[in-house]
Write a protein that binds this DNA or RNA. Structure first.
Lengths: 341, 341
DNA sequence: GTGAAAGCGCTAACAT
DNA sequence: ATGTTAGCGCTTTCAC
């Protein structure tokens, strides 16, 4: 690394003081236009770039936001949703001249690493993504006064711990998984399907629970436990779950699957079992990455507005950083109808 | 944010000087075990976390590495490979107690932002991922003395610009796309296929060129331009390209596709056209995320060792940061045979 | 509108 | 092994 010019070099080159350069560098308030142009030229000439460590140390800010993924990394790899979330957040933050630092947390070591870094004052706020509602990391950061926005539906109607009223839960942005699931199942019913099974997500995840609840809302009292199988959001899991459903309830004519990868696995299982999709069995999934549109038959799915979710998360965390106290948000989903139903 | 304790608070609480605490905090060399324990207790008691801005300012390091994606973000979203790269790099760096900051560069504004940020001294090195070999950002950073490791195959046999010998090109880590493609096509030939078409990537990407070259290596002199279509690595692009191939060369009995999403699209197009896979047409793809294993029939693909690539990229950038001058690496691919061939 | 001066919290010589 | 002393490069009162 070559020695970089400092603010003093710029000041000298522009014939002004360091303080004036500092003012000019952000906003340029209280700087004469004469000095302003001289400084701009000096910056260009010297190739000056502000040292953020020095700036942040002096100004007690960090100019950065952390993106914390509280999931085993293979889930990040497997689930295209996380990408969209991450890259959209990165772009939004970049547009606000903030830096995004990423942490993938698995295991106690990484969790403590995350704590050390996020609590170290080099982060203005954090975006926490976790399938598990009310992740301890989010609560801890929030309790420590770090502005936090969580992605994920909170568990339905949990009683707050007694005496915890003074520290309200972190702000979250969620998709309305439950209604989305209901809409998908109603669509299946509207297509004349009568025996609609479901492949649910793990019960310890809020979205697993909510999508299952949405299925129940639509199928009504007729709920038959034979029609419920549980997967782990992977294609392999979906395949196994579908095979099991076919075994337990061979008469089924539709299945609502709580994840797109699982749905792709379900379609593979149906194809192997000689059932045609959608003629014999209609399949509706959840989430809408390239996979849903790519497989054959293409998948009818419930789309979460991930881009907007990221957008809102960034918006809310900036509001929190500015001292505001925004409310949590639940955004509606959208049913995308394709060939599989 | 609450006011955080400083190193002086810890020093006072432990009854030692600030310098001793500083030594104890990293490594603990030249610190008596007596002082060491006192400091550890003081840290625990005060809840002290080092301020990295101050540390980095004083030590002229950044303790962080940037992950720069020189692609439109929709590609990140669409291509599962980038995820794996990103999350593996994040983990590796975390294990070395480094922070990963992410930059997604699209458009001139963001590119200039990236420059400002990476040149600002708060980054020790950069990992640049781009489909376009020798991306200007990588060259610029490298030219400015920032340790850079690029992911991506360099263009085949480009003559270096005259006089550029003093600044050799950045170090890269690549997969051997060309041999991988050849192996896949030989596999197709081994299955008795005779008319093997290809869906190539865009010619301005190195991997597009290399995979096409690998196909040529295997099919030999019989190369027939009717058998080459070009896609953009998306499923839709693959679908369109396959439809075109079917139109131009209806007699084809196999196709080698330069990307997994395009391959999925190709299978969809074949299914729609009433061709059975693999009975009528065998399909081999490139890259091996959840998609390849999930679709039906599951896809035979060339797998790039992405986890190892990330591992190596981190290793090399650390070596560069330490002042070493490691060599570039090309890693072999692996053919994963599934149902589609 | 501009400059002087005092830190921000830490590391890194240099003494001891 | 430990303490003292300077800064690192910037922001930020506070005078002018």
């Amino acid at each position: 690394m070559l020695p970089r010019p400092t603010i003093d070099d710029v000041a000298a080159a522009a014939g002004v003081s360091r303080a004036t350069v500092s003012r000019a560098l952000r906003g340029g308030h209280r700087v004469s236009s004469r000095a302003m142009t001289a400084i701009q030229q000096a910056v260009a000439r010297t190739g000056y770039v502000v040292n953020r460590n020095a700036r942040n140390l002096a100004s007690h800010r960090a100019q950065s936001v952390a993106f914390v993924l509280c999931e085993p990394p293979q889930r990040l790899v497997a689930d295209p949703s996380f990408n969209l979330l991450l890259s959209t957040c990165a772009q939004e933050l970049t547009a606000h001249d903030l830096i995004l630092t990423v942490a993938v947390t698995t295991g106690p070591d990484l969790r403590s690493w995350v704590r050390r870094h996020l609590l170290g004052g080099q982060v203005d706020g954090a975006l926490v993504v976790s399938a598990h509602a009310s992740d301890p990391i989010a609560d801890e950061l929030h309790g420590a006064g770090v502005p936090v926005v969580v992605y994920g539906t909170p568990f339905p109607a949990t009683d707050p711990a007694p005496g915890a009223d003074d520290i309200p839960a972190p702000v979250y942005v969620a998709a309305d998984d439950r209604s989305g699931a209901t809409e998908a199942v109603r669509h299946l019913l509207g297509r004349g399907r009568r025996t609609i099974a479901t492949i649910a997500g793990p019960p310890e995840t809020a979205c697993g629970l909510n999508r299952l609840a949405g299925w129940r809302d639509a199928v009504g009292e007729t709920t038959d436990d034979r029609l419920i199988a549980v997967g782990d959001y992977t294609a392999a899991g979906g395949q196994a779950a579908m095979a099991e459903l076919l075994h337990r309830a061979p008469e089924l004519d539709a299945v609502f699957v709580a994840g797109e990868l699982m749905a792709a696995g379900a379609i593979a299982a149906l194809s192997r079992a000689g059932r045609r999709v959608p003629d014999d069995v209609a399949v509706a999934g959840f989430d809408d990455s390239a996979v849903a549109a790519t497989i054959w038959p293409s998948l009818t799915t419930v789309r979460r507005p991930l881009a907007e979710i990221s957008h809102r998360m960034v918006e809310l965390v900036l509001e929190l950083i500015d001292g505001g106290s925004p409310r949590s948000l639940t955004l509606p989903t959208e049913l995308v109808i394709r060939e599989s139903t």
